[in-house]
């Protein structure tokens, strides 16, 4: 992909994200943050590309470590977010009873 497109995508995504996230109430800021945290682990996609294209065994090991760290980030982030949101949700159902 042309470099210019990557920059345009970055700018557009930043603006769109800004609009979307402004709507989140402060009640949900901690889950929002941990969810965003999980998404920042999207760098696992880059790590996979890098692992596939790695030439030297040293650089491949680097890529593998990157995959490992990014995956901890993704799984941990989504995991804690789900846990917190379940607390919010669980309470609501109890109230309904």
């Amino acid at each position: 992909m042309e470099s210019i497109w990557l920059i345009i995508i970055f700018a557009a995504a930043t603006l769109a994200g800004y609009q979307l996230i402004r709507q989140v109430p402060s009640l949900l800021h901690t889950p929002l943050m941990s969810g965003m945290n999980a998404l920042s682990g999207a760098t696992v996609l880059g790590a996979l590309c890098a692992a596939g294209a790695a030439v030297y065994s040293g650089s491949r090991i680097c890529a593998y470590i990157a995959i490992l760290l990014a995956m901890i980030n993704v799984a941990g982030g989504f995991g804690v977010t789900a846990r917190m949101l379940n607390m919010f949700k669980g309470k609501k159902e109890e109230d309904g009873q």
Binding site: M1, S3, W5, L6, I7, I9, F10, A11, A12, A13, T14, L15, A16, G17, Y18, L20, I21, R22, L32, M33, M36, N37, L39, S40, A42, T43, L45, G46, C49, A50, A53
Partner: peptide
């Protein structure tokens, strides 16, 4: 993501950046 030419990573990274800034 720009380094490895991965548009999805570029976009998601941008969103996360925006959220952190807000």
């Amino acid at each position: 993501g720009m380094t490895v030419n991965e548009p999805l990573l570029v976009a998601i990274g941008g969103v996360v950046g925006a959220s952190g800034i807000i």
